[in-house]
């Protein structure tokens, strides 16, 4: 465990805007985390647990990989 940004990228911000400009506070409440955690996820400073990632994807009604992506290894 280290203090550094995650490689996981996400479309949470775009998904929020596509779903009636849902606020970070509303998403946080529906997922069961703090608003600061949603901010950290959107800014790529935190990758949530698989369970929270599934809950976020489910709020938007999309598959997990539409909400979160992980870059291919090169080499």
């Amino acid at each position: 465990m280290t203090a550094k940004p995650t490689k996981v990228t996400n479309e949470v911000r775009a998904l929020r805007f596509r779903h009636g400009e849902m606020t970070q506070a509303e998403l946080a409440e529906r997922v069961g985390v703090t608003r600061q955690t949603i901010i950290a996820i959107e800014q790529g400073r935190y990758s949530p647990s698989l369970e929270v990632a599934f809950r976020i994807a489910r709020v938007f009604g999309v598959p997990l990989e539409e909400a979160f992506q992980y870059p291919e290894d090169r080499g």
Partner: peptide
Amino acid sequence: AYQRGLSLA
């Protein structure tokens, strides 16, 4: 960790 982010990898 709060400011820079936290990676579990």
